[in-house]
Amino acid sequence: MQDLIDELGRMPGVGPKSAQRITFHLLKLPREDALKLATAIIEVKDKVTFCERCFNVSEGPLCGICTDERRDTHVVCVVEEPRDIVAVEKTHEYRGSYHVLQGAISPIEGIGPEQLKVKELLGRLDPEGVTEVILCTNPNIEGEATAMYLARLLKPLGIKITRIASGLPVGGDLEYADELTLGRALEGRREVE
């Protein structure tokens, strides 16, 4: 039992106390329910790999988005992690393809472009006839550095490079907006139609 508590305690956001609570909960469960969880974990580990084209999580060689023929392959949205795809997909605003870098350039951690899927992105541009690359990395220092690096790399290739806008969150308060965000929001203002 202690083994299970220790293992659960290593999950993100689960402390020793919650690990203990989950363990006791599992003990109380009927055998089938507990097995269902165990098999689900095994299946995920066995079946899910990374998509060969975009490095999203996938159950086959290509992910669901790459195999979907209705999607526009001429536009590539570059994100840091597969969970960023989930966030963008939720907007229902985007119908193009993706590319997951699996991280961001972080000089302070010593993570450079070689550790990311940058070469793979370059390799996709020509064969897929990409006309626009959307740099959709996080608006923090690592994400901005990554976006600037990619922009510098891709600009000479004559492809349209765009960066997602920075602005104010809907439902937010102007009073609490920081100067950097508010400044960019003003800079990227739009004419009202």
Binding site: I108, A145, M148, L180
Partner: peptide
């Protein structure tokens, strides 16, 4: 509250990379 956010450094890869080296050394 921000005093200065060094926007020019932030928006230039060369400067940003130099600034990060300074931050890393101090840290």
């Amino acid at each position: 509250e921000t005093i200065d956010h060094f926007r020019t450094i932030r928006e230039d890869l060369d400067r940003l990379s130099r600034a990060t080296a300074l931050l890393e050394a101090v840290d």
